[in-house]
Design a protein around this nucleic acid. Sequence first.
DNA 1: ATGAAAGCGCTAACAA
DNA 2: TTGTTAGCGCTTTCAT
Lengths: 385, 385
Amino acid sequence: MARVKCPICNKTENILKAGLIRNKQRYNCKNCNYHFITDKKKKNKIPFFEKSDKQITMLDIARAAGVSITTVSRALNNRSDINVNTGRKIKELAVTMNYQPNILAQSLVNRTTHTLGVIIPSLETTIFSTMLSGIQEVAATAGYRVIICTSNEKHEREVANIQALMNNMIDGLLICHSIHTSTFEHLRVHMNKRIPIVQFYRVAVGLNVPQILAEDEAGAEAVTDYLIKKGSQKIAMLLGPKELSLTQNRLKGYQNALRKNKIKFDKNLLAHVDFSDESVYTSLDNWLSRFPELDAIISISDKSAAQIITKLKNKKINVPKKIRVVGFGNEFVGEMLDPKLTTFDTQTRHIGEESSRLLIEQIISGKRDIITKVVPGKLIIRDSA
Amino acid sequence: MARVKCPICNKTENILKAGLIRNKQRYNCKNCNYHFITDKKKKNKIPFFEKSDKQITMLDIARAAGVSITTVSRALNNRSDINVNTGRKIKELAVTMNYQPNILAQSLVNRTTHTLGVIIPSLETTIFSTMLSGIQEVAATAGYRVIICTSNEKHEREVANIQALMNNMIDGLLICHSIHTSTFEHLRVHMNKRIPIVQFYRVAVGLNVPQILAEDEAGAEAVTDYLIKKGSQKIAMLLGPKELSLTQNRLKGYQNALRKNKIKFDKNLLAHVDFSDESVYTSLDNWLSRFPELDAIISISDKSAAQIITKLKNKKINVPKKIRVVGFGNEFVGEMLDPKLTTFDTQTRHIGEESSRLLIEQIISGKRDIITKVVPGKLIIRDSA
DNA sequence: ATGAAAGCGCTAACAA
DNA sequence: TTGTTAGCGCTTTCAT
C-alpha cells in the first residue's frame, strides 16, 4: 500500500486510517495527532448521473473567488458589510457556476422552510380543489411552497398527516377537517407551538385556532327565505354529518328562515349524508315516499343537487314546477344542468385565498390572533328554483 | 460582572467573551486558549409560545438515557448493533418525551427528502385535480410527501417552479406541461441529474424523459370510428394548441379513422382552442355557420362538450339527432347532462397513479429507463352520440 | 471588509 | 455494544 504523508510533520510512519467521510479517506497522524483527508479512489463504477451531478456549494464559489465561505454567504444574501466589488464578483461567479442554494441547509439553520402544509379531505371534490387552488396561488405569490395531504375523510390519516408535517417541514398549517373528525386532541397539542394553524371551511368549534368560514348560516337562511318567497312550504334539506360546524350553521340558517316565516320545523325533512352518491339517492327516495307535498330541496352541494335534479327528471317530476332545487357552492356543473341550477355561491376560491393569506400573515408577524372570518357568498338565481 | 471560571485552568482572569452561540455565551480562556460555553440569561421577554415549544432532540434523549447521541440514533433507526434493552429503553424514552425527528436534518444528511414535486397547469380543471389525487394517493402510500406547483398555463412559471423544486427539496419531479411550453431547455438541464423526472398527460416529444400518456390516438380513433358507424360524415374536432403531443395524437387517431372509412379530411373542421370558454363558443359558431351539414363534434374535454351541448340546445339544435357530441375524460358532469354525454374515458386518475408509481420506482431503484406508457381508456357510450 | 469557528439536528465510519 | 468525531451546506458571532 502506498504510504500517506502527514501534511503537518511530513512523516509516513504511524499514519492510521481514521474513517471514510463522504467518499474521502480520513487519516490520523499519530505523531502529531492530526486528522487529515485525501481523496479515495472509487471502487464501484460511477452512476450514470454522477458526472454532471456535482452540486455547486458556497465552498466551491469561495475557492473560485479566493475568499472565505462567510464572504460568499454575505454576498449572496446582499449584506451591507461587504466590499461592493467582492460582492459583485461573487454573485457573477455564482451565476456562471450555476450555483443553487441548498434549501434544506438554509431551512435547518434558519428554522423556516417557506412551506405551508395543507390537509384537505379530498382532491376530487370540486370545492376542495378550488379552495386548494386559491391557497396555492396566494402562497406562491408570497413565496411559499405548498405540501398537500389528503385525509380521504379518514380521521387517522388526518392525525398522521398533521404529525408528519409538524416535524419541521412546514412554517404553517392549513386544515379542513375530515367528516369523521370529532375529537381535536391532535390539533390541540400543536396549538401553542411556533407553527401557526388556520382551519378553513370545516372547522372545530370552541378550539382556539383561527378559522375561515363560508357563509353557511346566512347563506342557508337566504336560500330558505328565497324558496319560501317563491311559495315553497315543505322544504327538505340535505346536510352533511351532524358533527360538522358547517352542518349546524346551515341548519341554523334554515331554521331562522322557517321561524321568521312561521313555518313549522320538521326534523324528518332533514337528511344527513356522508357525501356518497348512494346516501343522496336514499335520502331523496325517502323524502319522496314520505312527503308527497314536498316542494323544495336544499342540497349540501351542487353535485348532489345535480344528482337530485337528474333523478327527479327520471321520475318525471318537474323541476322547478313541482319541486324546487337549490345547491350550494356554485360549481361549474350548475350552469350545464337543465334546468340551470339555482345555488348559493360560497366563494370557495376566496375561502382558500383568505386562509392562505391569514396563515402567512401569522407566520410573518409572529402574532397568533384567534380570528374568525366569514367569507361572504351570494345567491345565484337560475332556473331550478 | 460576575467572573467566569475556565473549566481547564480554573482561573478567572483573562477570560474573554467569544461569541454568542444559539443563546449560549461562549468564552475564550486566554491562559490555556480554551473555548467554552455557559448559559446566557435571556434578555428579551420570552415569546408566548416558547415555553411549550422546546423541540426534543436526540441529544435530550441521550442525556436522559445516559448514553451517546449515536446510540440514540441507532436505537431509533432500529439498528441491529445495539443492546436490546438499551434500544427498548431509548425508544420508550423517545415516546414519553414526545420526540419528533427533525426531518430537515435527516434529509440534509441522507440527501433524500421523501418528497415529490408536481408541476401541473391548474387545479381547477377536473382532470388535473383528479390526476393529482392519484399522484398524491400513491405517493402517500409509499411514504412520500407531495409539493404542488401550478403553472397556470404559463411557461415562465413552469420554468421557475422547476428550478425552485430541484434545489434539494425533492427526490423526484412529475410534470404536466403548460400549453405555452414549446421549448424544453428548462427540463433538459435537469435530465442527467440525480433527481428523476416523469412527464405525464402533456409531454414533450423527443425528450429523453419517461412519459405516462392517455390513450389519445387510439381513443380519438375509437371515438371517430364510432361516430362514423353511427352515420356521421361531417365530424368536427375541438383540439388544444397544435404544439401539444396530445393534440397531435388525437388528430392522428381522428385521421386514421377517416382514412379507414374513406372520408375526406377537411382541416377546416378542426379548431384549436386555448381552453377558454370563449374560444370554445367561437369555434362552435364558426362551424355552425360554415358547415350546415355538420353532424358530429368531438370535444377536447367533457367540460367543453357540456358547453357545446348547452349551446346547441339553446339554438334548438337537437343532440344527438342533428349533431352528435362526444367528450373526452369521463368527468362527473357528463352523467348530469341532458342528453347524457358519450365520452372517452381517459382514466385520468390512473394516469396520475401510474406516473407517481413510475417516479417512485425510479427514485428507489436508481434506474433511469426511458419508458413510455399509455394508460388504456375506454369509450363510454351514453346518449349524446 | 473579511475570516475562523460554532452550530442547526442528524447519520455513519472507525475505534475501543 | 457503545462512544468519538466529522460532516451534510448553510448562517452568524466575534475577532481581526
